[in-house]
Design a protein around this nucleic acid. Structure first.
Length: 210
DNA sequence: GGCCAGGCGGCCC
DNA sequence: GGGCCGCATGGC
C-alpha cells in the first residue's frame, strides 16, 4: 500500500480535529511523557490533578515536591519514574526556549532529557511546536507492519519515509498520525478486526488468511 | 480476571 | 541494530 492511498482511505473515515488536546506547549510535554505506555483516559485524569494542584507550568513542576507530583500522576502507571522524569524535564525546559531553537537543535535538546525518547521528542516537536516531524508510535508501526506500507520498522527510517511520502506540512503530519492512531484503536488492534476494517480493500493482511 | 495501553533506559549480544 | 527486562495503574 502506498501512502497517498492510505491517506485518502483514512480521510474517508476519520476527521481528526484538534487531536492532541492541550492548552499550552508545556501541556503537550506533560501529556507526551504521561502517555508513555498508558491510555489517554488515565493521562486526562492526571492532567486534571496537576491543574487542580496548579502544577501545569514548567516552573511550577520544577519546584514541586516529588511526593505531590507522584500523587497527581499515579493513574498513568510507572508513576514514580514519571514524576521524577517530569520534574527533570520541567527544570530543563524552564530555562531553555525551544521555540527559538533550530529544529535540529531542539530535537537534540529533547533527546538529551532523561525520559524523552524518539517518540516523545517528536510528538512534542510536532504537536507543541508545530515542526514538520512525523512521530512513529506503536500504533503506526503495527499498521505499517500488517498493511506492508513500508519495508522497514526502524524508527528513523520509518519517520523519514512518512516525511518523504507526505507533503511536508505539520498539519498534514498531525492529521495523518492522528488518523493512524484512530485506525489502530478501532480496527488494527492487537487482536485485529480485519473484517470490518476501513482499509481491508487495500491491506494485504486482510485479504490473506490470517 | 487477564490483556493492553500513543515508551524509555539499561542491559546484553 | 535488535531483543529483553523493569517500571505500575486503571479501563475494558
Amino acid at each position: 500500500m502506498n501512502v497517498p492511498s492510505l491517506y485518502s482511505a483514512l480521510k474517508k473515515r476519520y476527521s481528526v480535529g484538534s487531536w492532541w488536546p492541550a492548552e499550552t506547549p508545556f501541556e503537550v510535554v506533560i501529556g507526551a511523557v504521561l502517555t508513555q505506555q498508558a491510555s489517554w483516559k488515565n493521562v486526562e485524569k492526571a492532567i486534571a490533578n496537576l491543574k487542580r494542584a496548579k502544577l501545569i507550568t514548567a516552573r511550577a513542576i520544577s519546584r514541586a515536591p516529588l511526593s505531590k507530583l507522584e500523587k497527581c500522576v499515579r493513574s498513568t502507571g510507572f508513576y514514580k519514574q514519571k514524576a521524577r522524569r517530569l520534574k527533570g524535564i520541567a527544570k530543563a525546559l524552564a530555562r531553555a526556549n525551544l521555540s527559538k531553537m533550530e529544529l535540529k537543535e531542539a530535537r537534540a535538546f529533547l533527546f538529551s532529557l532523561h525520559g524523552v525518547g524518539p517518540e516523545t521528542a517528536d510528538s512534542i516537536l510536532l504537536y507543541a511546536y508545530n515542526k514538520p516531524i512525523f512521530p512513529i508510535d506503536a500504533y503506526t508501526k503495527r499498521v505499517c507492519k500488517r498493511a506492508k506500507i513500508a519495508h522497514t520498522l526502524n524508527y528513523e527510517k520509518l519517520r523519514a519515509f512518512f516525511e518523504r511520502e507526505l507533503p511536508r506540512s505539520a498539519d498534514i503530519y498531525k492529521e495523518t498520525h492522528g488518523m493512524l492512531v484512530e485506525l489502530a484503536k478501532e480496527f488494527c488492534r492487537v487482536k485485529p478486526r480485519c473484517r470490518e476494517c476501513a482499509l481491508k480493500r487495500m491491506c494485504k493482511r486482510a485479504s490473506e488468511p490470517k
